[in-house]
C-alpha cells in the first residue's frame, strides 16, 4: 500500500512539475510579444566624440548621471575624440544596433561629410532627440571701433578680406557660422582657424584678430569683465545670459546658425528600445538638477523630438553642403 501511495505521490509531483515547467515555457513568449522588451539588462555606453572635460562631455556626463537611475543600469561615458568628432561618429554608427551604444553627436556630423574625408553620416543614426543648441555670435574687443553689428559688417564690406575672423578649426561649426554671415550679407572675412574656441578668444584678447564667431558662453567671462563685447547672436531669440545683446534678425540680418548636440543610436535599433531610451533621457533632461547644471555651463537646452530633429539635421546638412563648397574646404575625391 505504502508503495502505491508513494508511486501516486511521485506521479503527481512529476506531473505537477511538468505542468509548471510547461506553463513557464509557454508563458514566456506570450509575455514577451505585447510588452516592451527587457531593456536595458546591462550597462549602456554613451560615446562622446570629444575629449573629457569639454562641453559635450560635461553635458553627456550630467545626463548619464540622471539617466542611470531611470534606466536602472549604469550609463558610462566613453570618450572617442578626434577628427572633428569623426572618430566617435563612425564608432557610434557602426556599433551593434541593440541600444546599448548611444552616441552624443553634434553639429559637425552634418559638416564633415561634405569635407569629403569622412564616412560619418547622420542618416546612419536613428536620432533619439536633440538636447542642446547654442547660437553663434560675433564678438569683438570692447574698445573696437564698431558699436553695432551694422557698423562692423559695413566695415567688412568696404574692406574685403581685411577683418580677421577667428574660429575653432577648419570646417568647424564656428567656421561655417562665419561663412554663413558672408553668404547672407555679402562680406568677405579672412578666416583664421585656431585649435579650439579658447585659443581663438585668446588671440582676440591679444589683438591678433579682429573678431571671433563662437558661442556667447565661450566669451562669457571676458564679456562680463568688460574686455570683449558681443555685436549680435545668430539666433531667433536673445540669449538668457546676455539679454541686452540683440540678435542678427533684430538688426536686419536673416542669419540663424548654431551648434547643437543630440543623442542617437545606430540604424536598425528596435523601435521600442529607442522609445525606452528617449523616455529616460527626456526625463533626465527635465530634471531640475540637470537644468541647473546646464545653465551654469552656459549650455542652452533645446529639446526636439526625433522627427523634428531629423528634419532639422537634414536642413543643416543641405545648407552646409553649399557653404563648404563656397569656402573651398571640399577635398578632392579619389
Amino acid at each position: 500500500m505504502k508503495k502505491t501511495w508513494a508511486m501516486v505521490a511521485m506521479v503527481l509531483v512529476v506531473s505537477l512539475m511538468l505542468v509548471v515547467a510547461g506553463c513557464g515555457g509557454g508563458a514566456k513568449p506570450a509575455e514577451k510579444a505585447p510588452e516592451a522588451p527587457k531593456f536595458p539588462t546591462k550597462q549602456i555606453e554613451i560615446i562622446v566624440p570629444a575629449g573629457a572635460g569639454g562641453g559635450t562631455d560635461m553635458l553627456a556626463r550630467a545626463m548619464a548621471n540622471k539617466a542611470k537611475d531611470l534606466l536602472g543600469q549604469p550609463v558610462v561615458i566613453v570618450n572617442k575624440p578626434g577628427g572633428s568628432g569623426t572618430v566617435g561618429f563612425t564608432a557610434g554608427q557602426t556599433a551593434k544596433p541593440d541600444g546599448y551604444t548611444v552616441t552624443m553627436f553634434f553639429a559637425e556630423i552634418v559638416i564633415v561629410p561634405h569635407l569629403g574625408i569622412a564616412q560619418a553620416d547622420h542618416k546612419l543614426f536613428v536620432p533619439i532627440m536633440r538636447v542642446n543648441m547654442d547660437p553663434a555670435a560675433i564678438t569683438v574687443k570692447a574698445d573696437a571701433p564698431w558699436k553695432t553689428l551694422k557698423e562692423f559688417l559695413d566695415y567688412a564690406k568696404a574692406n574685403p578680406g581685411k577683418v580677421r575672423m577667428g574660429n575653432s578649426g577648419p570646417g568647424s561649426i564656428w567656421h561655417l557660422a562665419a561663412a554663413t554671415v558672408e553668404d547672407k550679407t555679402g562680406v568677405k572675412f579672412n578666416h583664421v582657424p585656431y585649435g579650439g574656441a579658447a585659443p581663438a578668444v585668446t588671440a582676440l584678447l591679444g589683438g591678433a584678430i579682429e573678431a571671433v564667431a563662437v558661442s556667447p558662453a565661450e566669451v562669457g567671462a571676458q564679456v562680463a569683465s568688460g574686455k570683449l563685447k558681443i555685436l549680435g547672436v545668430m539666433s531667433d531669440k536673445r540669449e538668457k545670459a546676455f539679454p541686452e545683446v540683440k540678435t542678427f534678425k533684430e538688426q536686419g540680418y536673416e542669419v540663424v546658425v548654431g551648434t547643437w548636440r543630440g543623442l542617437g543610436v545606430p540604424k536598425g535599433t528596435p523601435e521600442p528600445v529607442v522609445k525606452i531610451l528617449h523616455d529616460a533621457f527626456k526625463k533626465a533632461m527635465d530634471d531640475p538638477g540637470f537644468i541647473a547644471q546646464a545653465d551654469k555651463l552656459g549650455l542652452g537646452l533645446a529639446y526636439l523630438n526625433a522627427a523634428d530633429f531629423t528634419k532639422f539635421m537634414d536642413a543643416d546638412f543641405a545648407n552646409y553642403a553649399k557653404l563648404v563648397d563656397k569656402l573651398g574646404l571640399k577635398q578632392q575625391k579619389k
Partner: peptide, 21 residues
Amino acid sequence: VGLDNLNGYPRFTFGLVDLLN
C-alpha cells in the same frame, strides 16, 4: 599625419578614420 589644422586636409591618413586626428 592627420587633418591639417588650417585647411582640414587629411594627410597620410590612408583613409583610416583612426588617423584623422
